[in-house]
C-alpha cells in the first residue's frame, strides 16, 4: 500500500485516547491510532509494552477505561454491515484432535459462515494457506509452520475487514514465515487491514507498510521505517573507521572519539559514500577497519526504548 493512498482512504479502525488499567497497572496510556483498509501495520515494542492489551481492547475482549475504539463502518448508524474482525492469537488456537477441514468448518460456523459459502471459503482458504493436500490430516500431525498457517486460516473464513495477529510467526521456519507474509500480503491486496505484533525486526522493516513502536503503554513512534529513522536517528547511514594508532590529522565530515582511534560519519544517502571515502587518501595511516551501516528499526527502537532489560 502506498503512502499516499494510505492517507486518502478512510480508516477502518480508529483508536482515540484509549486508556486501560489492567491488574493494577496502567497498560494503555492514551493510545490514538488509525488503521486503513489494505494497510499492514506492524506493532513493535518490548515485552510488557501493552501490545497484547491493545489487541484485546480492539477485539472487544477488554473494555477500555476511557477513550474510543471505532470500527468503521460498524459504528456508523447509516451502515448496516458491521466490520468483520479476525483474531489470530499468539498460541495455536485450533483443535489439535480435529482435522484441518474440521477445524476450518468449526471456526467458520462460529463466525456465522455456513452452507455453500462455508464450503467455498474453506476451499479458498485451504488454497491460500497451502494446506490443500493436508485437508484430512489431524492438526496435531502437521508441522509447526502448517499449524501456524491453519491458525491464521481459521481467522479469515468470514473474510474479515480487520485481522489482528499476535506474533503470528513465532517458532516457524523461514519458508513458512515467508508463506505467512505472502498470505498477509494477499489479504491486504484484497482490502483487509492487518495489524500484527511481532518481535521480528526484519519482518517489520521489510513487510509492514507502517510501524508503530509502543513502550510503557504509549505509542512512542508511528510511521514508515525511513520516517522513523530520519526522525529519531537523523541520517540513515553511517561510516565508521577504526585505527590501530591514534590519528592526529582531522578528517572532513568525520567525528573522532578519544583517544582518536575511531571516527564516525553519518550519511543522508548512500550516494555520498564515495565522496566521504575519498578523504581517506589524505590520511597518514590507513584505517584498520571500515564499517558502512544503514540504520534500521533496531536503532530506532533502542533509541526510543533504551537498552535496559524489560520484564
Amino acid at each position: 500500500m502506498s503512502e499516499s493512498s494510505a492517507t486518502t482512504v478512510s480508516p477502518v479502525l480508529t483508536l482515540e485516547n484509549v486508556r486501560k488499567t489492567y491488574r493494577g497497572r496502567e497498560a494503555l496510556k492514551g493510545i490514538s491510532l488509525e488503521l486503513r483498509p489494505g494497510e499492514l501495520l506492524g506493532f513493535f515494542g518490548p515485552n510488557g509494552a501493552g501490545k497484547t492489551t491493545m489487541i484485546r481492547c480492539i477485539s472487544g475482549l477488554l473494555k477500555p477505561d476511557s477513550g474510543k475504539i471505532i470500527r468503521h463502518p460498524f459504528d456508523d448508524p447509516d451502515d448496516d454491515e458491521p466490520v468483520r474482525l479476525g483474531l489470530v492469537p499468539q498460541n495455536l488456537a485450533i483443535y489439535p484432535d480435529l482435522t484441518v477441514q474440521q477445524n476450518l468448518e468449526i471456526f467458520g460456523r462460529l463466525e456465522g459462515v455456513t452452507g455453500k459459502v462455508l464450503k467455498y471459503r474453506i476451499e479458498e482458504v485451504l488454497e491460500w494457506a497451502a494446506l490443500k493436500d493436508r485437508t484430512r490430516s489431524l492438526t496435531k500431525t502437521l508441522s509447526g509452520g502448517m499449524q501456524r498457517r491453519l491458525n491464521i486460516a481459521c481467522s479469515v473464513l468470514h473474510d474479515p475487514d480487520i485481522l489482528l495477529l499476535d506474533e503470528p510467526t513465532v517458532g516457524v521456519d523461514p519458508q513458512s514465515r515467508e508463506r505467512i507474509y505472502e498470505m498477509m500480503k494477499q489479504l491486504t491486496e484484497d482490502g483487509a487491514a492487518v495489524l500484527l505484533t511481532t518481535h521480528q525486526l526484519e519482518e517489520v522493516e521489510t513487510r509492514c507498510d507502517r510501524i508503530v513502536v509502543m513502550d510503557h503503554g504509549a505509542i512512542v513512534a508511528d510511521g514508515t521505517l525511513s520516517e522513523l529513522v530520519s526522525k529519531f536517528i537523523g541520517h540513515p547511514h553511517r561510516v565508521n573507521l577504526k585505527f590501530d594508532h591514534p590519528c592526529s590529522k582531522p578528517l572532513a565530515s568525520f567525528i573522532f572519539d578519544e583517544p582518536r582511534t575511531s571516527a564516525t560519519c553519518s550519511l543522508a544517502s548512500m550516494k555520498e559514500l564515495p565522496q566521504v571515502l575519498s578523504v581517506l587518501k589524505q590520511l597518514e595511516q590507513a584505517p584498520s577497519r571500515i564499517d558502512v551501516r544503514s540504520y534500521g528499526l533496531q536503532d530506532v527502537f533502542l533509541e526510543l526504548t533504551g537498552r535496559s532489560l524489560r520484564e
Partner: peptide
C-alpha cells in the same frame, strides 16, 4: 485449555 490457547478469545470475538 481453550482459554490458555486463545481459542476462547477467537470464539468470543465471533458470533458466539
Amino acid at each position: 485449555e481453550e482459554s490458555e490457547s486463545g481459542t476462547l478469545d477467537r470464539m468470543l470475538i465471533g458470533k458466539a
